[in-house]
Write a protein that binds this DNA or RNA. Sequence first.
DNA 1: TACTATTACGAGAGCCGTAAGAATA
DNA 2: TATTCTTACGGCTCTCGTAATAGTA
Lengths: 308, 308
Amino acid sequence: MNLSHLAIFYAVACEGGFTKGARRLRLSQPAVSKEIQALENRIGVALIDRSNRHFRLTSAGELLSSYARRIFALEEEAEHALAEMQGLRRGRLAIGASTTIGNYLLPRLLGIYRGLYPHIELNLEIANTSLVQQRLFEHALQIGLVEGLASNTELQATQFARDELVVIAAPDHPLLDEHVVMAEELCKYPMVLREEGSGTRVLIDRALAAKNMVLKPVMTLGNSEAIKQAVAAGIGLGIVSDLTVSVEVNCGRVAILPIADLTIERPLHLLHTPDRNREPTVAAFLKLLKEHFGRRPKKTGRCVQNKL
Amino acid sequence: MNLSHLAIFYAVACEGGFTKGARRLRLSQPAVSKEIQALENRIGVALIDRSNRHFRLTSAGELLSSYARRIFALEEEAEHALAEMQGLRRGRLAIGASTTIGNYLLPRLLGIYRGLYPHIELNLEIANTSLVQQRLFEHALQIGLVEGLASNTELQATQFARDELVVIAAPDHPLLDEHVVMAEELCKYPMVLREEGSGTRVLIDRALAAKNMVLKPVMTLGNSEAIKQAVAAGIGLGIVSDLTVSVEVNCGRVAILPIADLTIERPLHLLHTPDRNREPTVAAFLKLLKEHFGRRPKKTGRCVQNKL
DNA sequence: TACTATTACGAGAGCCGTAAGAATA
DNA sequence: TATTCTTACGGCTCTCGTAATAGTA
């Protein structure tokens, strides 16, 4: 069967006549007549009762018409769904992110995204970099936002922002009263750090090693939240990503302690498969990301609040 | 959207590649490539991710593919349904019949029909001739089988059999012992007849009036069953259609009394709309009808059993 | 090199329109 | 006569195939 023939038959069946069907399809009436004959010949059954003037479908015609109605309703629904997808009123955005980005940076960004495109299904997977890469590779995720960057994959990576590690202290810490604090002073105070081997700790140790310095942690903890708690409790100074402390800084539980001769930064990377034609949902997210990180947010003063 | 384009896209999506899709459709690969581009241009979205060697649908492609699967499944189902209809494994036969035909003639015929075509839905409406004609006219019935025949309709009518009215008597009735019984003898015995004005009674009265005779009913009853009961009870002779008495004759409750000089017959008519192309279910029924009534069943002897 | 997709171009089938014919109310 | 469907025929679009090109493992 030929579905374009079926479309002609269906128009005729709906309108109740060859002439009316032809008008609806903007075809000439003989063309319609001929195409319906072709359809009838192809399937070998009369569809329209031509015995008298009153237009009437045969039972085969009724049967086929009911199928045609469903088929063309589906076609229309498909077109509608595609239009919705293009208008970002339908679709899915699947992002993978590292813990820090996923917990502190993305929630607000995804909130804005959801405000703009409320019908898009959002999926956020928080996992380590290699797992995010794997999930991207198998197309379970569309983009990844991570700090680290493993090599030898087919993924495209671009840096979209920088993450700064900052020293935090309890609000009553004596160093906060100093006008200028140098890195070497940190070594005199107890520190609360991530465990050795973690990406953050490696970065910190490497930055201080460049100055021939070694920090002495009084405590190591597995995540930034625990470090913030320990610092607030006065156990020592901590070093965490500035993304993670805006709330605690704003409410005065901890304070950022600028170090005059020390900046520890790491790039934040955007990962994606090298698709030339990106999904509309992804393109919209990347646009949003660019708007927020086109210029790096400035850090001014000790109590700067991150833009996000 | 063009559904023939969609078919090409769907084959490619199913097979996972332009080349494989082309093989399945028995088309050249460039043709497939071009048609898919045409489809993408028409709907304005990329459907297939061409960024690397691994064939993959975009999310729009996935969406459209799922609709295509449903659309073409429906198309296949429609073709299957039509084939079933042609093979008389699906369909409907709606017959209207008068009481006598519907109750005594059709059950066996429809039993045979059902044995041949067990999946055809059978509808039998028992009603008077004018109602049957009306229902035929509005296409609620496909054929009608009636005794009478009202005029001025657009229905085609053909006689398919004759119905003989026979005199019945209780098995111990004295006339049954006579070798030859003439019509005038009937007038000497009490008769149980249908009420005046009924089609059957009109026929009887007319036949006897032609011989200048008038029957004297001792009782009039509204239907043949009641007449048979009255006759069996010895109230008198009855005149009923031979279609209605085969059971009672066979089991000896009543006997047929042949009248040498009297034959009361009426034609049985087949009514249908003047469709040139008849439904397969109807054609099959008409064939069956012709096989059984091609020659009128002979009546031999007094206890003849009707062929049906 | 082998495989896959795209581009280019020509041939042919099939679709559609105009005009005329047939049937019916 | 007016309306509706069918038949006849010619043009044109669209689809398909062959051949050549490009990109990738």
